[in-house]
Amino acid sequence: MTSTELSTAADVVDWRRRVHALYRAVRETAEPRQAHEAWRRGRDQLLASHPASPLLGEHRAGFSGLAVAEYDERYRFEVAVTEPDPSLPSAFKASTATDGDVPFARLGTVVLPAPEGEVRLDVWRLASYGGGIFLPVKDAAPDSYGGGRYVLDTIKGSDLGTTRADDGTVTLVVDLNFAYNPSCAYDPEWACPLPQQGNRTAVPLPVGEQHRGAWVDY
């Protein structure tokens, strides 16, 4: 391993540590709007200055912050994970340049009564080392990133809260205000797992990070 590789690995470790801390603060903040504002500021700081930021170098100098919609409490849900649609695939593999084929297994479905209509999203488990819950979404809002966004990716720290009842029911906090663009929205060298059929909806979700935030004001 070269000194450059070691430095890069250490930067990624620090990035993950900071993201985990940011989401821990979100979960510990009682008022969701305040938590969302702290999350937005924290992500802006990380993307602007951290050596592991996915922002390309030429975009960092003029970076003035991500375009994130105002918080809307109507898009925050605490929902149980239910049985998935048996007609959809139960697993998929995402091909990446750094980690090869990354397997995911479907755990179930969440049903979100969004203002514009009901949204059904599959919940996935990272079926390899480390595990973790993964919840992406691709919606019809015109300002959403075309490749889809992530709401939960717990192995990387994006965790808004999970509870398990005595009967085994698992409930997730799914707050779409915290939907964010994956790293491939900023740097084409990244290969990101994208929403599968069960994570695509014709319902517009006009909250969270906006697509224009990946390209404008840099």
Rank of each mutant, 00 (worst) to 15 (best):
M1A: 15
E5V: 09
L6N: 13
S7N: 14
T8N: 11
A10T: 05
V12D: 05
D14E: 15
A25K: 11
A25N: 12
R27S: 12
E28N: 03
E28I: 04
A38V: 08
R40T: 14
Q45V: 06
A48N: 05
P51C: 04
S53F: 01
E58S: 00
R60T: 05
R60S: 07
G62D: 04
G65L: 01
V68S: 02
V68F: 05
D72K: 00
Y75V: 10
E78I: 11
E78V: 14
E83Q: 13
S87D: 15
S90H: 05
S90N: 11
S95R: 14
T96S: 01
T98Q: 08
V102I: 01
L107V: 03
V110E: 06
G117W: 04
V119R: 07
V123E: 09
V123W: 12
L126V: 07
G130P: 13
G132I: 02
P136K: 06
K138I: 01
I155F: 06
A165P: 08
V170A: 04
V173T: 14
V174S: 08
V174H: 10
A179N: 08
Y180D: 11
Y180N: 11
Y180Q: 14
C184A: 05
Y186R: 02
D187N: 15
P188C: 01
A191Y: 11
C192W: 02
C192T: 05
A202R: 14
G213Q: 01
V216Q: 15
Y218F: 10
